[in-house]
Design a protein around this nucleic acid. Structure first.
Length: 332
DNA sequence: TCTGCCGGGCT
DNA sequence: AGCCCGGCAGA
């Protein structure tokens, strides 16, 4: 595709990472006024947008990096988080409502791109999971609604979020929320350094473009978003095979942000899908035949024509046996 | 290696 | 539909 678009894509996938670094710094300086922080965020995002085209910037975080406050551009990278720590609410999220205009045009463009949709989001998230420094997160819940990606730490919170914002708060959507969020836990193992079981926090995305999405929740409330179903059907397909959590050995020199390293390992399963699997529901339309789900019937103990009559008296075999089909004379 | 039979091609 | 066979997988 055109290089400019590719560049935007690269940038947009980098920006959240930097933002994340910023978030840790942000926590360290929460004594600052929100306005000041917000201005810094905007400034930082702008600077980062112009600086973060090179993967070098994306080098794994120095977790012991001091979150000093200064006006240098380097500090912007550390302190330019857009992540707001909701503090008293008990969760942090990406929810900025409709605050400032999108600080990073590239992010906005990527988010609003119609063909990127949720898969891109997941991809991005997975990518980020591998890069994120260790933290003490247990597990978080991410909204799967297109262009939302809100992350909360409580299932109640995410359900409420989905019900209110996306499902229009209708009561008929009871339990439906389950299908629109995913629990992210440590199964997205960070293999870059250790196999630490500590769950990784799902990286929230800028909602600078989700503003419009949030502004029309009622129109979406009665039917699932198409991209969601795309994901969901994919899950169903994948559900035929066990979820792969194991980790392939990896070159120590491999770049932790290489998507190919991360994507196959990290698969978030929506709670709804988990429910489906637990309840042994089958995909509605999918035919299981000719997939790896179909298994060959185990060999029976019964003797068939071949054994009974032998190859010499093949003419006495049943037709099916002669045709190498399932024996009809001595069925299982 | 033997056996059962699925999947698919040919007539 | 009838016939045949390559090839897979369990014993």
């Amino acid at each position: 595709r055109n290089p400019e678009a590719a560049n935007h894509r690269r940038r947009s996938s980098h920006a959240p990472l930097l933002v994340y670094y910023g978030s840790s710094a942000l926590i360290g300086r929460d004594f600052r006024s929100p306005e000041s922080v917000e201005m810094d965020e905007i400034m930082a995002a702008m600077v980062l947008t112009s600086l973060s085209c090179s993967p070098v910037v994306q080098s794994p975080p120095q977790t012991d990096q001091a979150p000093a406050v200064s006006s240098s551009s380097m500090d912007m990278e550390c302190g330019g988080g857009e992540l707001s720590d909701s503090g008293s609410s008990g969760y942090w999220s990406w929810d900025h409502g409709n605050v400032s205009p999108a600080p990073s045009p590239s992010v906005t463009e990527a988010d609003s791109s119609p063909d990127e949709g949720l898969p891109m989001e997941m991809e991005q998230s997975d990518e980020l999971n591998a890069k994120r420094p260790k933290s003490s997160f247990r597990g978080v819940y991410k909204c799967l609604w297109p262009n939302c990606g809100k992350v909360l730490t409580s299932s109640v919170g995410i359900k409420r979020h989905i019900r209110v914002l996306h499902l229009g708060g209708s009561e008929q959507s009871h339990r439906e929320e389950d299908f629109y969020y995913t629990k992210i836990s440590c199964e997205a193992v960070d293999t870059s350094a250790t196999q630490s079981p500590s769950p990784q926090q799902q990286q929230p995305r800028s909602n600078s473009s989700s503003g419009p999405g949030h502004s029309k929740p009622s129109t979406l409330s009665q039917s699932a978003p198409s991209s969601f179903w795309q994901i969901h059907s994919e899950h169903l397909y994948q559900a035929c095979s066990p979820i792969q959590v194991s980790v392939a050995p990896r070159s120590p020199t491999a770049q932790p942000w290489a998507p190919s390293m991360v994507k196959p390992r990290c698969r978030s399963v929506s709670v709804g899908e988990q429910w489906l699997q637990q309840n042994r529901l089958q995909p509605v339309s999918a035919s299981p035949s000719r997939t790896h789900c179909s298994f060959r019937k185990g060999r029976s103990e019964a003797k068939k024509c071949r054994k009974v009559y032998g190859v010499e008296r093949k003419d006495q075999w049943c037709t099916a046996c002669r045709w190498k089909k399932a024996c009809q004379r001595f069925p299982d």
